[in-house]
């Protein structure tokens, strides 16, 4: 059987096109500097709304927390500690998010394909990191309403046991999720579901591509 020469087919296909391609040098030269900046700005703009919402939320938390500290009373100890922890965890998550955005803008595309695609994909999946950190605030939402005035002194054993079990279960869940919600565990269906649910289609695609790159780099799998 006559074997088809794929390289020759490819060359023939582009022979005429190669000869007729033209570059609009004037247009390119005129626009290059200005348009490159515009392109970068548009990337930053798309993330601004998310950052603005997070900052407003943090300002509100900060205001409540500073009011409690300024008008300090021992009755607010649980509240101050819980809100303080929630505030710090959220500040950390926002810082992490902005850092990733800056990092995304600084990625040099001249690296090898699998390395750069993996970096870009990991950035898309950095939502996993934000989510696992934000889960750490979970236990503090079960303690902020307590007060030295009535807890535990004025409460019965039943309530004390219930409160301890509630906080303990939140601590366990938070630590478990923090430990398990990693890219290395993407082979587990529930990890994929949690991350996909949090980040939508974009994250689902990133998860699929993550597996694709891993398979591509693996010499035994094709």
């Amino acid at each position: 059987m006559e074997e088809v020469n794929f390289v020759l087919l490819w060359k023939e296909q582009y022979e005429k096109i190669d000869q007729s391609l033209q570059i609009n040098r004037r247009l390119l030269k005129d626009s290059l500097h200005q348009k490159a900046e515009t392109a970068l700005q548009s990337v930053v703009r798309t993330k601004q709304i998310g950052i603005a919402i997070a900052i407003i939320y943090l300002i509100l938390l900060g205001l409540v927390l500073s009011y409690a500290i300024v008008h300090y009373s021992s009755a607010a100890n649980y509240f101050i500690v819980s809100m303080g922890a929630i505030f710090i965890i959220n500040i950390n998550a926002l810082y992490d998010y902005i850092r990733h955005l800056v990092w995304a803008g600084a990625i040099d595309y001249s690296g090898s394909i699998t390395v750069i695609q993996q970096q870009l994909n990991r950035l898309q999946l950095s939502i996993a990191r934000h989510i696992r950190v934000t889960f750490l605030q979970l236990p503090f939402w079960s303690t902020f309403y307590l007060s030295d005035r009535w807890f535990p002194s004025e409460m019965g054993w039943g309530y004390i046991v219930f409160q301890c079990l509630l906080t303990l279960s939140f601590v366990t869940i938070a630590l478990y999720l923090y430990k398990k919600l990693r890219l290395e565990n993407l082979d587990r269906q529930w990890v994929r579901s949690v991350l996909s649910g949090a980040g939508g289609k974009k994250v689902r695609n990133a998860i699929e591509f993550y597996t694709e790159i891993e398979n591509f780099k693996n010499e035994n799998k094709c």
């Binding site: 096109i17 007729s20 391609l21 033209q22 570059i23 609009n24 247009l27 390119l28 626009s31 392109a39």
Partner: peptide
Amino acid sequence: AYFPESIISMAG
């Protein structure tokens, strides 16, 4: 599009 016209085009 970043540019209004095509940067690379065909002569024919």
